[in-house]
Every structure is written in structure tokens, then in C-alpha cells.
């Protein structure tokens, strides 16, 4: 729910990435694209640009319904008193759902958690993605196998990978990490109790590093070899080559990785449910998880919808921020 409008923004961006004017939100962007496809009244009559509105209408209409219906329903519910446990409580709630939420400390904590999670995972995936892309660009024995292994975690379902990390790796009694530290006489870390957020970040990063690596490895192959040779002749080596030639070349694919990952990271859920269930306390409750708590544990549909609307706003704020910085890179 939270990501739907964001996806639409992205679609919009991909269609005409060079136009900065398109990145305003909500209806203005929508109407301006509608005007472009022929619904507008501003269009001069021109036999060489016939009106295609009628032909596009089914597709545009479907997409509009696709977006509008859930959005409207969410908005509607967010102003209702609506709890599945007690059908007698009903009727218009005004801003009470919002008021209650905004005064509720957990909301702010969960927003903070969401930002921490998304930010850390993004940084980790970019750093490791770039590292792998650069390392795997060099020829060495067994490179293809190594590449395959780096990509592999991406194909593991989130639930499964969370279970593996929880029970086989990070478990304080049975886990591999505990066994290693215990063998070294260092004592045991109970990951999900002592560092819950870090644990989740590690798991999610492990799943998303392959994606960044894949995109960046592919990008490395389009780096002009003559350009690298020219830089080599100019005296660039190792770090300076990386800093002045490789990294600028990877800037654009990195932007793409950041955008796509953000969409999915804002919606991370299975990993939290399987490992910490948002705890201990609310240490790993993200906005997505909070909505789940409200809707399916407290059966408070009104409150959950209000949280959903807040999530949409958050997603749009993040999107606005990202698109403004990223789009500038892409257009360059």
C-alpha cells in the first residue's frame, strides 16, 4: 500500500527521465501526463498528431483505478472508527485516528527505525556492491563460480533466509557465530536480544547486496577500457583509478540501485516477523510492521489505515528526496 504511489512516480520518471518538471507530486504530475497523451484542452489541432486519448483511455483508466481505489479506501478507512473486534464502534472518527497515532510514541520510533534500516542497508549494499563489482572485474581463477555465489542469496526467499540466519547462524545456542566465539573463548552474543536492529540490517543487507553487485558488475563491463588505459598512462593506479575513473562511471547505476532498493526496503516485513517480531520492545518495529500490528494484531483498521497514509507520505518524502538527487545524475 505504502509503495504504490511511489511506483507510479518511478514509472513516470522512467518514461521521461530528462524532464525535471515531471517530478511534482500527486495530481499535477498525473494531469500533466494526461494532457500529454491527448486528454488536454491545450492541444492545438494538428492532423499529424491525431488525438490518441480514446485509444489510451483503457490503459490509463486501468492504471488510475489500480492506484486510486486502494488509495481512496485507505483514506476513507483512516477517517473511520473501525475495529474488527468490536463492530459496535463505528462511524466517522474525524482526525482522531491520526491524532492518536501522532501522539503515540511508537509511531515516531517506527519511522526512525524505518529510516535507520533503509539507510544502513542502502549504504551496506552500495559499499559491498561496488567492492564486488570492482573485484570481480579482475580476471582470476574461478571468477564465474564466485560471481554466481555472490548473486545466489538474492534467490533465497526472505522468510527462508531469515530463518537460516535466526536458527543456524545467529542463534545463541545452536548458531554458527555462537559456536565460533565460544570456541575462541569469547563468550556468546545473543544477536536478536542484544543488537536486534543490527541483526535485521545484516540479514536484509545480505539479501540485497547481490542485487547491487549484479547491477554494478554489469555496469563495470561498459567501462571503456581505452579510458582506463588513458588514465593508467596519466598515472592513475589502484585507489586513484577507482576514485577518479571507476566510481564516477558507477554513479549512474548506483543511483538506479538506490532507487529500486528503497522501494523494496521500505516494505521489508518477513525478516522482522520471522526474527524479532518488532521487538524487543519496539526496537525493530518499522512503519510497515506497525501497520501490521495495528491491523492484524489489534484489529484496528482505522488506526492501521491512518498509519498507512503516514507511510505513503513518508514514502513520498523519501521518493521526492531521492528522485531530486538521483534524477539529476540520470539526466546528466
Amino acid at each position: 500500500m505504502a509503495t504504490t504511489p511511489f511506483c507510479l512516480r518511478l514509472l513516470n520518471l522512467q518514461r521521461r527521465p530528462r524532464k525535471r518538471a515531471n517530478f511534482e507530486f500527486g495530481h499535477s504530475a498525473m494531469t500533466s501526463s494526461l494532457a500529454k497523451v491527448g486528454f488536454g484542452v491545450f492541444k492545438p489541432k494538428d492532423s499529424r498528431a491525431p488525438r490518441t486519448g480514446a485509444l489510451l483511455a483503457p490503459a490509463v483508466g486501468l492504471l488510475l483505478i489500480w492506484m486510486i481505489v486502494p488509495l481512496t479506501m485507505t483514506l476513507w478507512f483512516s477517517f473511520q472508527r473501525y475495529n474488527l473486534q468490536n463492530p459496535l464502534i463505528s462511524g466517522f472518527a474525524g482526525f482522531n485516528n491520526y491524532k492518536f497515532l501522532l501522539l503515540y510514541k511508537t509511531l515516531w520510533i517506527s519511522i526512525g527505525n524505518t529510516l535507520v534500516l533503509v539507510g544502513s542497508v542502502l549504504s551496506l549494499t552500495i559499499v559491498f556492491g561496488v567492492l564486488f563489482a570492482v573485484v570481480f572485474d579482475e580476471a582470476f581463477f574461478g571468477r564465474n563460480i564466485a560471481r554466481l555465489l555472490v548473486i545466489a542469496p538474492f534467490f533465497v526467499m526472505p522468510t527462508v533466509s531469515a530463518l537460516i540466519w535466526k536458527n543456524l547462524l545467529m542463534h545463541p545456542v545452536n548458531g554458527l557465530f555462537a559456536w565460533i566465539t565460544r570456541s575462541l573463548g569469547l563468550g556468546v552474543v545473543d544477536w536478536f536480544a542484544q543488537a536486534p536492529m543490527i541483526s535485521i540490517i545484516i540479514i536484509v543487507a545480505w539479501q540485497w547486496i547481490p542485487f547491487a553487485s549484479l547491477i554494478l558488475m554489469t555496469a563495470m563491463q561498459s567501462l571503456d577500457r581505452e579510458q582506463m588505459e588513458a588514465a593508467y598512462l596519466d598515472g592513475a593506479r589502484g585507489l586513484s583509478m577507482f576514485w577518479f575513473i571507476t566510481l564516477p562511471h558507477l554513479f549512474r547505476p548506483i543511483s538506479v540501485v538506490v532507487m529500486i532498493e528503497t522501494i523494496f526496503l521500505l516494505a521489508v516485513f518477513a525478516e522482522i516477523l520471522v526474527t524479532t517480531s518488532g521487538g524487543p520492545g519496539n526496537a525493530t518495529t518499522t512503519l510497515t510492521y506497525l501497520i501490521y500490528l495495528k491491523a492484524l494484531l489489534q484489529w484496528d483498521v482505522g488506526g492501521a489505515s491512518a498509519a498507512g497514509v503516514i507511510a505513503i507520505i513518508l514514502a513520498n518524502v523519501v521518493a521526492a528526496f531521492l528522485i531530486r538527487t538521483v534524477a539529476r545524475n540520470l539526466a546528466d
Binding site: 571503456d224 581505452e226 588505459e229 588513458a230 598512462l233 564516477p248 562511471h249
Partner: peptide
Amino acid sequence: LAMVFQSYALYPH
């Protein structure tokens, strides 16, 4: 030495 490449190999950024 300095070399001029056929594709120029200028740094695009």
C-alpha cells in the same frame, strides 16, 4: 610518453 587513442578516450565526467 603520452598517447592519443583512436576513440580519444576522454574522461566523460
